[in-house]
Simulated scan of single mutants.
Amino acid sequence: MRYSLMLCACLAASPAMAGIEEALTDHILPGFAGFSTAADALAVTAEADCSPDALRAPWNAAFDAWTEIGDVRMGPSETGALSVSFWPDARGFTPKTLRRLISSEEEVGTDPTAFADVSIAARGLFALEQMLYDADFDDYAPGSYACTLVQTATADLASQAQALEAGWRDGYSAVLRSAGAEGNSAFLSEQEAMTALYTQVLSSLEFTADSRLGRPLGTFERPRPTRAEAWRSGRSLRNVLLYAEAAEEMAMALSDGEMPQTEAAMQRLRDAAEKVSDPSLQDIEDPSARLRVEIVQQNVRALSGYIEQELGVPLGLTAGFNSQDGD
């Protein structure tokens, strides 16, 4: 009886470990598994039919799955995510690289194994978006080099997804779970691991506000609508919401209590997004359309603030460095 009481007391005094386990089992691990499944389905579809009409739906499903964990940039994802989601592409490397591959019909574009050594600008979700939605690329014929390139890129994406899932499931999850244990040089305490996960949440929301929304907004005098993430496929606003929802979900998993203000802030963000007229954010040169997007941006920042209040402050957490910082 005394042992049981002591055990309960120890568990109650260790909210960080509970939060780490819940973040892994409720959010991160199923998120990577879901992305792997969706990427594999995309590759299977492409093998049977490489046409944009056939691939747009499974590509969108794969992108949806990616947003669950795409902003978790630690462990296997710290570098592994770069070739899945090469954005922003400020210098237009993706179309340049794709044009070079197609015009020269480079052999590497027909070999999914060798394709892993291609520039990350030609790999992942955004290179596929260019092939499936850009008028300069999406008119390829069945059996053409471009068709094969799309099949190669989808197979490569599936391989990347499998590697990320395995890296988290079979390796890095144990590193987080053993935070503070002897021999764990990555996290010398449970608090360090908790801080690292908390940083992913706030960094995701910061990146959404500053880059996913801030880049296309530009300035009032010079908006840059084509700098919006995934604008060709019309999912710029959808990405904002899905990444924000993923950040909220991970915050809730990390928390050892209710977060009513955070939940309310997320709902206000959804409500604000419903008023945006163009989901690709291409109409923001119009002042009224711009204002609606700015209100969405304000709500993303407000959501981050409530997470700090309801998660960070009670647990004594302060966000640290994240691999997306400075983008």
Rank of each mutant, 00 (worst) to 15 (best):
I284K: 06
S83R: 15
S280R: 12
A247H: 10
S288D: 13
T110C: 12
P142V: 07
E308N: 06
A273K: 05
D26W: 10
V201C: 13
C147N: 13
A122N: 02
L281I: 12
I295G: 02
I20D: 02
F220S: 15
V300W: 03
P314N: 01
A48F: 01
S204D: 09
A127K: 02
A12S: 08
Q130H: 11
A38K: 04
G143W: 09
F86A: 11
T97A: 09
R235G: 05
S255D: 08
E107M: 13
S255T: 05
W231C: 01
A265G: 01
V240A: 00
F63G: 01
T79C: 06
I69R: 08
D134M: 04
R238Q: 12
E206A: 11
S83T: 14
C8W: 04
L55C: 12
L188S: 08
A186E: 13
A181H: 09
I284A: 10
R301V: 07
L157D: 07
A135G: 15
A121C: 02
L303K: 00
G171S: 02
R56L: 10
V150S: 06
T148H: 14
Y198W: 04
S51Y: 05
E106A: 10
E190C: 00
P76H: 00
D156N: 14
W66R: 10
A16I: 00
F86Q: 05
E263K: 08
L29M: 03
A9V: 08
A61R: 09
S304W: 07
R56Y: 12
Y3D: 15
A265M: 00
R290H: 08
T79E: 14
S159M: 12
Q130F: 07
L55H: 12
H27D: 15
F35T: 01
R99P: 06
S104P: 02
W59S: 12
S211D: 07
